[in-house]
């Protein structure tokens, strides 16, 4: 690929990506703010996060379940995110150590 084309590709990617980043707050500006909208947006945040976590966990296979399960349990017990993430990863790493990388 020529340098000119490479730079055009980078520019196009940057524009499309920024459009998605700015698009959400831009579009939601046209929606009248009501209790209903607020309600939807509150559910939206959690739902997006669930939609990020669930497929990634399933794709991770057994280690995915171990990492996420331990992290959630630790977060509930310790009430702190950082140690919970560390424990989840440690558990997954141990699992991989014994079972091999899947």
């Amino acid at each position: 690929m020529s340098t000119t084309n490479a730079l055009l590709v980078v520019l196009a990617m940057a524009l499309v990506t920024y459009a998605t980043r700015a698009g959400g707050i831009f579009l939601v500006g046209f929606v009248p703010m009501s209790a209903r909208t607020e309600n939807f947006l509150r559910y939206l945040a959690g739902a997006v996060l669930v939609a990020l976590v669930v497929p990634a966990t399933v794709r991770g296979g057994p280690e995915g379940y171990v990492a996420v399960g331990v992290a959630i349990l630790a977060r509930l017990v310790l009430r702190k995110a950082l140690p919970a993430i560390a424990l989840g990863i440690l558990a997954a790493a141990l699992w991989r150590g014994y079972m091999g990388v899947s």
């Binding site: 996060l49 959630i72 990863i89």
Partner: peptide, 27 residues
């Protein structure tokens, strides 16, 4: 297991975000 750090991060965030039973169905 570095590929799982991001998932674990999102999962722990989810715990903090949960408001209660009201979130069960949407989630």
């Amino acid at each position: 297991a570095l590929d799982l750090v991001l998932v674990a991060f999102f999962a722990t965030t989810l715990v903090g975000l949960r408001r209660g039973r009201v979130d069960d169905l949407p989630w």
